[in-house]
Nucleic acid binder design. Structure first.
Lengths: 328, 328
DNA sequence: GTGAAAGCGCTAACAC
DNA sequence: GTGTTAGCGCTTTCAC
């Protein structure tokens, strides 16, 4: 069995209060006594019972993280960076994962609240007033990432819309005469929060309109079936823009299958700059998503919230940059 | 503030004992009373305080996971699968990550023990008797994955050695006349546990000796500097074998840079079958690492251990299979 | 069928 | 400088 402070007190021949003073060096205590307690504690492998401490102090020094997909490289990086930031501030991480399921996401949040986490980092798939109400009822600060809930729920994100506008301009400047934008839905069970997908689409639309470059939007999951037709429809020089790198890679395969080459026959640009791009040829031009920075800033915000600081819920959106490689 | 069972009792006008009977439907209780309590609890958003429950019951329904690298796709999948398995058994996951640091790994384990987790899933980097002693002192069952500690520490893994022997045989049968095996060290700060790296190397060596096929082993981190020489040294048809897919992808790039083609000029085979291979051309032949299965079996074993079952610490190693694609 | 009370291991306030 | 004690929110045993 594990050794408790009470037992340690008995063995050291002092009171439990003295044990506490020695272990957490608080208050006045005889140096000799402290040394003795510390030594015996070490020898016996005493380890404070953090659950009991939490019950007493009301702080768990723990943050919960809720993502909807860990298999996705993207979230893995997010969790990684968050874990890193948390550790630096001596917080531990409860990882939960909602598996694209709206109900499971609510469960995760409720459970984390039950575990009395000091704060929660959430990549939401739910949205709407009921969900916001649930979040407020958690009695723990929540910071969202990726999908914005609005309604004053703290959020850290990037300038999706502006990023796409910049990309469209680059496409135009590079000499392309039309754009096919591939933006399939991220599929969840049930209703979805597709804030980023919508923002990016809006950015493309706005910029295309302003510039006056023709735009075809493919929003369906079955875009591979219609892509070739969309690309070859005219003789005009076409750029394929994708709402994420994963789709861009799919497009790359398809284009190759038709016997066309990137960028000679068609231009291609992705979004996210996922790390596996370094193994892809031709090297994909893309928009970088500063996931590390997002995670770090999100945790920093969460930390300030956990420490009771008043904060504006939404910090300025983070700028992105285009990573120009070979595909455009 | 959150609402407690005591307060709920006051509001419902019953005793705290009755509250418990209603909430956890135990023992005999008047149906009406129960309904009333349940209704009020729901209306008030009562949520059991899991920390307090744990303190009382001595079980946290939580498992700790310790990996040394989350940025690595591989561990992300492991964590993901483990989280999945854990959730199915109503366990929650504490994720910690040792960042390749031996000391940090020990910290993680100690902290998890302090958090009173019911069990721990560990991908160890430390090894040796002191580390095994530390693990035994945790007072929680530990299952290791990836690197074997021996000394009776429960372990779930694959037949690394046999997998490599099979691969060497395939290489030979396919008509290659010599092998260059690339197996750089996984770098940790300090001493490392490289059980799998060693097993794979040993498998290659044994099989090459048995078959009588010439073998060059490149164990250094700087293998890119000497690879070309090692490959071109003779006119014999050469197969490049790598201890992991990541190195195989690096080799692929290098081979291309010399103006050679895979598999026409040189054969290539990796290990792990990481998912990003689906975007790589030529498609890489590799050995699949059943990470999902490993995670699932590891958690299943951990669960039996947590439930107090006596178990042989090491289950039979899991078989692998070669995924034949285009590179060999 | 319900209430009262002890106690999990720790921290912190108070007494000596 | 040290000891004693209450109490965090829950579960569980024992009365009634």
């Amino acid at each position: 069995m594990r050794i408790t402070s009470k037992e340690l007190a008995r063995i050291c021949g002092v009171s439990i209060g003295t044990i506490d003073r020695a272990l957490n060096n608080r208050g006045e205590i005889n140096a000799e006594t402290r040394e003795k307690v510390l030594r015996i504690a070490r020898d016996l492998g005493y380890r404070p019972h953090l659950v009991a401490r939490s019950l007493k102090t009301g702080r768990t020094m723990t943050v919960g993280v809720v993502v909807f997909d860990l298999d996705n490289r993207f979230f893995a990086q997010l969790v990684n960076a968050a874990e890193h930031a948390a550790r630096e501030s001596r917080y531990f991480v409860y990882l939960t994962h909602s598996n694209h399921d709206l109900e499971q996401e609510r469960d995760c949040l409720e459970h984390l609240a039950g575990l009395d986490v000091d704060g929660i980092l959430l990549v939401p798939t739910n949205r709407g007033p009921d969900f916001v109400k649930l979040i407020r009822g958690l009695h723990a600060p929540v910071v969202t990432v990726g999908n914005r809930l609005g309604a004053g729920v703290p959020f850290v994100g990037i300038q999706d819309r502006q990023a796409m506008k910049n990309a469209v301009q680059l496409v135009f400047r590079t000499g392309y005469e039309r754009i096919v934008y591939v933006s399939p839905p991220l599929s969840y069970k049930g209703r979805e929060n597709i804030y980023e997908v919508e923002e990016r689409l809006e950015g493309v639309r706005e910029a295309a309109r302003e510039i006056g470059i023709p735009l075809v939007v493919l929003r369906d999951k079955s875009f591979p079936d219609v892509l070739e037709d969309a690309v070859r429809r005219t003789g005009a020089r076409t750029a394929l823009m994708c709402s994420s790198d994963i789709y861009a890679l799919q497009c790359l395969e398809l284009v190759r299958a038709w016997g066309m080459q990137v960028p000679r026959d068609v231009g291609l640009i992705g979004f996210d700059d996922i790390d596996l791009l370094k193994y892809v040829r031709p090297a994909l031009t893309t928009i970088s998503y500063p996931i590390r920075q997002i995670a770090t800033e999100a945790f920093a915000l969460l930390k300030r919230l956990m420490e009771g600081q008043a904060e504006p819920p939404e910090a300025p959106l983070i700028e992105t940059r285009i990573v120009e490689r070979e595909s455009l």
